[in-house]
Nucleic acid binder design. Structure first.
Lengths: 146, 146
DNA sequence: GTAAAACTTAGACCATAGTCTAAGTCAACA
DNA sequence: TGTTGACTTAGACTATGGTCTAAGTTTTAC
């Protein structure tokens, strides 16, 4: 089963523009052409595109993804290098998750803070320290507006 | 305690360029000036900058952060809107964490896959399915190169 | 066999978020 | 009191990652 660029765009959610752009950037040297020059994508191509997307979503720049793709095309002689890349990206994602969890805590504090502020009718009545994890939030009734 | 732009850049890790850029974009209407026109940042300003950074890191565009900052300057009449923003961003970060965890699984598979490939000396000897969580990876000894 | 839809290219254009330069002003200190 | 360093501005420039247009070709479907 092979797919046109339009079908591939549909399947992957990546626009045709972007697919062509990726090819121009050297991210998809594996995509074949019909005799008249039209691209067609195999299932494997689309799977690999999924890996490219995964790497992109880890924050890897397209230029670096291209290097990885080039290594892949070179075959077994680049196995160690590719392993290193995946180890590096795995570590990066672990850090991203940890950072996102800290962000989540901060946002959660803010939600609780503004819930209290909405209830009190004013921020002035709300007490709590954003920098203390799970800090209790209290309303100073003397300062309530509603 | 107040800080110059240089000190603030040092404290926050945000360059002076970027701090000025943020001010120009309307993200820091609260920053005051000396009589000669130099900016100075209070501790509260720097705390708020931390919140701006937090929102930015959730993926919120600067233009939207500006809207939030404007609401903050408007005071208590925007409490509900700000609560909504934080609830939205909290939900967004939860999704980002979930997506990152799926990415981590994929990368972890790849690490294990390439560890096997390196051991076997060739990808051809490695068997395993990336789409199955914690899929076992095996080496087909008949195809080993080392 | 022809019209519409889907594709091709090169290259222009865009948004976002900085980053830097040039020319000038101000502050700190020896 | 002068010089060095830190600051000011406007505006040019950069990088990244697309996104679109125009002109032309090929496929598909009636």
């Amino acid at each position: 089963m092979v797919f046109t660029i339009g079908e591939t765009a549909n399947k992957t959610g990546i626009s045709e523009y972007t697919l062509r752009f990726y090819e121009k950037k050297g991210l998809m040297p594996f995509v074949k052409r019909t005799s008249s020059g039209r691209r067609y994508f195999s299932e494997d191509d689309i799977d690999f595109l999924g890996l490219i997307t995964c790497l992109k979503n880890t924050g890897m720049p397209l230029a670096e993804i291209k290097d990885f793709v080039d290594m892949t095309m070179q075959g077994d002689e680049t196995l160690e290098k590719r392993l290193t890349i995946f180890r590096t990206q795995r570590a990066a994602v672990k850090q991203q998750i940890a950072a996102a969890q800290r962000r989540l805590e901060k946002l959660d504090f803010k939600v609780r803070y503004f819930e209290a502020a909405c209830e009190a009718g004013t921020e002035a009545a709300v007490e709590g320290d954003c920098d203390v994890p799970n800090s209790p939030i209290t309303i100073n009734d003397a300062l309530r507006v509603k």
